[in-house]
């Protein structure tokens, strides 16, 4: 134990003899040599392997992220497009429906108009015919009246004991009827 302490003390004194080890210039060439070796080794490892690799990984990650964002953007655009297409289809369908409604309405109206016109024509024709018949009947009636009047007149004259000329009776009756 004692000898250990002594050697430790001796080592300490030896160190003290040179003061701060940092100022012991005899070790400088050694430290500088190994520092240069170390720095070259680290520089070699970094510049040849580590830094390009990490840089590539970071760039790749950046690329992946921006690709994903771009893909998301594109999908969003496509979704919007699909929505637009859907809305357009909907509008088209509406317009088509409206067109069909209008067309059908027009068709029905045309049919209706035709039917109305036909009915009107028929009605007109029938009423014309009816009028004609009425006129005929009226004419017939007048004729009958004059015939009856003539016959009656002739009969009355005959009954009174006269003999009348048929032509004179007709003329007298016609004249009375007209008058």
């Amino acid at each position: 134990m004692a000898t250990e302490l002594e050697t430790a003390a001796a080592a300490g004194h030896a160190a003290e003899a040179v003061g701060m080890p940092q100022l012991d210039f005899s070790t400088y060439p050694n430290q500088i040599f190994w520092l240069v070796v170390t720095l070259f080794a680290i520089y070699f490892v970094l510049s040849r392997i580590a830094l390009p690799r990490i840089g590539a990984v970071l760039a790749e990650r950046q690329g992946t992220i921006s690709n994903d964002i771009a893909a998301a953007e594109e999908l969003k655009l496509r979704a919007q497009e699909a929505e637009r297409a859907y809305e357009k289809a909907l509008a088209d369908a509406r317009a088509e429906a409206q067109r069909i409604v209008a067309e059908t309405k027009a068709e029905i109206k045309a049919d209706l108009d035709a039917a109305t016109a036909k009915a009107d024509a028929e009605i007109a024709a029938r009423s014309a015919e009816a009028e004609k018949q009425i006129a005929e009947i009226r004419a017939g009636a007048l004729e009958s009246v004059s015939e009856v009047a003539r016959a009656t007149t002739a009969d009355v004259i005959a009954a009174m004991g006269f003999r009348a000329e048929s032509g004179a009776v007709d003329a007298a009756v016609d004249g009375k009827l007209k008058g």
Partner: peptide
């Protein structure tokens, strides 16, 4: 013994460990 410029010292050892750590972490 004396520390020559080429002598492997504790400086060599700990600098070597630093290089090793660099390789472990970055490579």
């Amino acid at each position: 013994g004396a520390v020559h410029w080429y002598t492997p010292t504790n400086v060599t050892l700990w600098m070597g460990i630093a290089v090793l750590c660099t390789v472990l972490l970055l490579v």
